[in-house]
Design a binder for these strands. Structure first.
Lengths: 309, 309
DNA sequence: GACAAAGCATAACTGCTCGTTATCCAGATG
DNA sequence: CATCTGGATAACGAGCAGTTATGCTTTGTC
């Protein structure tokens, strides 16, 4: 019934004291104000201005509108400003989910980049393995998921949802073999996976375990899995004690070493691809895009420094 | 840039969780919501909703708008309600000016009528003689003026402004002659003005004085004016003491008597016309119209009860 | 007192915004 | 696989909100 434009006009008339003045102040023509007031008057069924001689004066009802205009317009401005702040990266919140081994260096570095460039953008961060993070993304519980997929498979589990999601590849993460330093193969340059058929294996997260089984099957054997843990530090510890061997993504080895563990390339080579995933809609949100950019840069800025030996 | 309708839509989407729900709640069609959101998005340059599968979810910016919508819309509603209250006579203030002798009975009775009918309409009241009250009306310092004009002249002083003002006649007020009870003519039924050429005269307010001089001139003499006072109670006192005779409007005699004063019709008869004056604009204000009605009724309800002896 | 200036109202016109209906497409559901 | 629900799109129509041009009244001035 009554709109913000009308209130703005009433306030301008109240401030300027004339239609012409209000028109000037608002950048309208004088007749525009004239008929605006008339419309308002017939909408509210009330006289809003007295035409007195050649100038005008607000009636009580008109003054009421002019008075309320301040409240309405300032609330409107506040809303507009807040949205503009989000659009202009002067505000905004990005909810990021990433799998544990990415949170060691890649994610912190990206977060630092965002914070440096847009101090007022808040990136919140939760650890989650790819299946959950993608589910959360789909459920709207996060805006960005850093996920990985072993070679051959896509990032979206299996092949579904690949049209729903938008992915940006961050880096390739080589999977290496972790051996106790005392192991006979520890001095080799590269190890054939098939040579490890008799070893005791230590498996990581469920998907990594699946990948291990897959690779071994391709190599013609079924591994003995003696331990399972999602904690790669624990894996290194187990390997160091000679309790088994393990496949460990290089990304983890960049931060977690163990003196008694040697890591080597394996054949056939295996890598996992690390990507950041979002939706087409969310990607158009400036803060989300900025975070993606930061992640891409953080991944590039860190050329693969091998952490073997 | 951003309007109340847009906020209303965003809030409805937030509340209902879907475009269709919002459309239903607001009485729009579903496509209306769809393109409304699109318009808002390209105006703000921001993504406001995520299209996720077959339903939607607000982005951070969208939630910001939905949140602010409450403030804006409630302020708007408050303004609308307040104007509606004025239009519906559930509020409003009328500034009335009336000349002193009308404030004795006519105005109080009218005010009581208004208060009885519309308890929330506030009528403020100031005493003022017609020239000032009309000036105040023109200057916007009052909404309603109760004024009088002696027979022959219009209410608006002279003839000017008669198109600016709107007048409603309230009553005719006969001007009577006040004599000391001991005066030789005190027992007559009616007195010829010309028979009073030698009397000492007591004049009232400036305009009344002017009228007295005019009448006497018409009757062929120039009165000796011994006293002037705007206080008619004082006039009666002076007359009672035999210090002179006076012309007194009947309206005053209804409330102010004096035991030693006799009032009689004079010839040629003289009356003044009492009217309520406002502007065309103000007359369309409900509270003003209601007060006019009350004044008219108060004047009618009081048939001329002569207060002579 | 006539004339110029200032200010509001009105008229006629235009463009675009905002709503409609009809239709299509995708995701959820049994 | 069929169906249903929900959103997007297209096409269209009405009405509103602006514009310019003009007239009228009031006011101030020579």
């Amino acid at each position: 019934m009554i709109d913000a434009a009308g209130l703005r006009v009433m306030k301008a008339i109240s401030d300027e004291g004339s239609f012409t003045g209000a028109a000037l102040a608002l950048g309208y023509s004088q007749p525009a104000i004239s008929q605006m007031v008339r419309r308002l008057e017939q909408r509210t069924g009330t006289v809003l201005v007295e035409r007195i001689g050649r100038n005008v004066r607000l009636t009580e009802a008109g003054q009421v509108l002019a008075r309320h205009a301040v409240a309405v317009l300032s609330a409107l401005d506040a809303a507009e400003e807040e949205v503009a702040a989000i659009a202009g990266l002067r505000a905004g919140r990005v909810r990021l989910m990433a799998f544990p081994s990415s949170s060691a260096t890649l994610v912190p570095r990206a977060l630092a980049l965002v914070k440096q460039r847009f101090p007022d953008v808040q990136v919140t961060f939760t650890e989650a393995e790819p299946p959950e993070s993608l589910a959360a993304l789909k459920a709207g519980e996060c805006d960005l998921a850093v996920a990985f997929a072993y070679e051959g498979t896509d990032v979206g589990r299996g092949e579904e949802d690949m049209d729903l999601f938008v992915t940006h590849k961050l880096l390739d993460d080589e999977v290496r073999l972790a051996l106790p330093r005392a192991h006979p193969l520890a001095t080799a340059d590269m190890v054939e996976l098939s040579a490890l058929a008799q070893e005791n294996w230590i498996a990581g997260c469920p998907r990594c375990r699946g990948h291990l089984l897959q690779m071994c099957a391709n190599a013609g054997f079924s591994p003995h899995v003696g331990f399972e843990t999602e904690d790669y530090v624990a894996v290194l510890g187990l390997v160091a004690e000679g309790l088994g061997v393990a496949l460990i993504p290089d990304l983890i080895l960049r931060t977690a070493h163990h003196h008694d563990v040697v890591t080597l390339p394996i054949n056939p080579a295996s890598r996992r691809s690390v990507s950041v995933v979002t939706t087409a809609d969310l990607q158009r949100v400036p803060a989300v895009q900025a975070t993606i950019d930061a992640l891409v840069e953080a991944a590039k800025a860190k050329p693969r420094v091998l952490a073997s030996t």
